[in-house]
């Protein structure tokens, strides 16, 4: 179930290194990586925080 928490992927180049680790592990297959652009499907994401743990540089926040 989508929850009220918000997920933010800092993908402007400040933190994200476009490595695709989050894309490969998201159980709902809802993150997309296009060269240097990361997007995720707000409606599908359950805020399970798995991608937050998998990101090697801490670019994903849930609050």
């Amino acid at each position: 179930m989508p929850s009220k928490k918000t997920l933010h992927i800092e993908s402007s180049g400040q933190i994200c290194i476009y490595c695709g680790a989050c894309v490969g592990i998201c159980p709902l297959n809802c993150i997309y990586l296009d060269e240097t652009r990361i997007t995720f499907d707000e409606k599908v994401c359950t805020r399970c925080e798995i991608c937050v743990r998998a990101c090697p540089v801490g670019a994903i926040e849930i609050g």
């Binding site: 290194i17 490595c19 680790a21 490969g24 592990i25 798995i50 743990r53 998998a54 990101c55 090697p56 540089v57």
Partner: peptide
């Protein structure tokens, strides 16, 4: 699963 993946840098 979480245990089935290594995150690398």
């Amino acid at each position: 699963a979480l245990r089935d993946m290594d995150s690398c840098i």
